[in-house]
Nucleic acid binder design. Sequence first.
DNA 1: TCGAATCTCTGACTATAGTCAGAAAATGGA
DNA 2: TCCATTTTCTGACTATAGTCAGAGATTCGA
Lengths: 298, 298
Amino acid sequence: MDQALISQVRGFNRIVTQRVGALNDRFLARDRSLGEARLLWEIGAEGRDVRYLRALLELDSGYLSRLLRSLEAAGLVTVGPKQSDKRVRIARLTPSGSAERAVLDERSDELAASLLAPLNAGQRARLVAAMAEVERLLTAAMVEVAPIDPGHPDAQHCLHAYFSELDRRFDAGFDPALSIPADLEELRPPAGLFLVASLRADPIGCGGLKFRGKEPAEIKRMWVAESARGLGVGRRLLSELEDCAAEYGARAVRLETNRALAEAISLYRSAGYIEVAPFNDEPYAHHWFEKQITSAPT
Amino acid sequence: MDQALISQVRGFNRIVTQRVGALNDRFLARDRSLGEARLLWEIGAEGRDVRYLRALLELDSGYLSRLLRSLEAAGLVTVGPKQSDKRVRIARLTPSGSAERAVLDERSDELAASLLAPLNAGQRARLVAAMAEVERLLTAAMVEVAPIDPGHPDAQHCLHAYFSELDRRFDAGFDPALSIPADLEELRPPAGLFLVASLRADPIGCGGLKFRGKEPAEIKRMWVAESARGLGVGRRLLSELEDCAAEYGARAVRLETNRALAEAISLYRSAGYIEVAPFNDEPYAHHWFEKQITSAPT
DNA sequence: TCGAATCTCTGACTATAGTCAGAAAATGGA
DNA sequence: TCCATTTTCTGACTATAGTCAGAGATTCGA
């Protein structure tokens, strides 16, 4: 990788860990420890599953449990069982926990204001614009794409979101019973494959492959959460699906799509997909695309 | 301050402490602890006074001493007395300490590369450009401007740098003996004032005022270090000098300058200075400027 | 309905990062 | 010379941030 890019990133890292990172921790930790403050923050107004918190903060389950006991003893949170699954426990803020969190919120505002304070209006506007760009691109870089069983809760979450979006966007709604099905079995090795893109603990996109022997592999269920659009997640999923298909031995991939999905269609075109004659009788499809792939070394 | 700006800064802080801050620490700490790694890094190739390290890293003296003992025991540093003051001790890297530091350097490169790795070429270029902007503006926000005695070492450093730059840039060089003098006494309250801009511990710019009773106050010795140009330090010094003059009761400020100092001249013009007839016989001056000031509340 | 898996918790442990008081050596100014 | 100050060091302490093994409750799938 280009050394000039690396040097610039290092310069940025130095300034930012000094000027933002160190301060951030000190601002967030009030009387309580940083770990407790972070936890209090992440529990949020709605409450959160303990297991979700564990994934989000990447904490050891024993350690997290102890932190929760300590916040509970301080009267800031209550932890109770989840109705739908009594193994899972939910942490919620008490009124005084919410008050404490509001203080953290205020401190965070103060820190942000202190970063902007020495600058004039023009500089502030430029700094904020550049920060937005850095945030967006670093977020994009944090997205992880991994193969997962299509029956896994994260995969199911994506599939439900996908179907409900289709139902919302298609002119006449969407009924999976009328569409060509893709059973979980078909999206599971060795018949197929399912990729999920996640940001921190949240699934934000998916895409499946059905292998067809000598025929081109079929791409199914491509979806990106609204909250994650503009990060290049779709393009990344598509390219990883192509790599997987190539690895499996396919020499082309193909897919069909509906005219309502304009941004998807333009993604396919810009990724080198060529419109072809219908290769199936999917009733919801208006466009069929195909792309030749070569298993180039990464 | 605008809440939209604050929110954006907060979003940035969140991502950056997570993605850069936390990783930075983990990358820096190899087998040794983060404290030791940071210390090893800051001792640097040249060696450093222990008391300087204490100020830089803001460590307790007992804690720092223990860290140094531990690095010494590992054969990475030696600590010896300073010749000029035997109370002070100097820490230096041994060859194997230098080798270890080189590894840290490499890790820092790797971290930078890992931030860029998931992105495509276009995204990388945009991220690095935005990072450069953020770095520049956060650096600008770290600059502190304060009044200081013109005899203080930092002030003297600036004045020497100023004169040597004039000598370099003026067509016929610069000899202070031929110019209208500004004795230290004239730049010291109550006759005048001297401001120094600093970035972390280093002086990077200065500017003086001579008060003239009812007459406009005179701005003298405006200088910004080459390394700090483009941060808006000149504009900030100028505006703080104007504020000081207004506070003292002046209703205008004026200054003279040489045609070789093109960027200074354009700064004066854009800050609202109007070219006027010569008000003194400074032999090195080609332009004389004046600005009416109003003591507006900040 | 049984066994495997999931989720949370407790107990026992370790490493890191500090804080504080006070002692010893060297320096600087009256 | 004497005494206050600076600088560093040691000993004794605490808090934070974990890690790991295993137990108990619950759920899920065959």
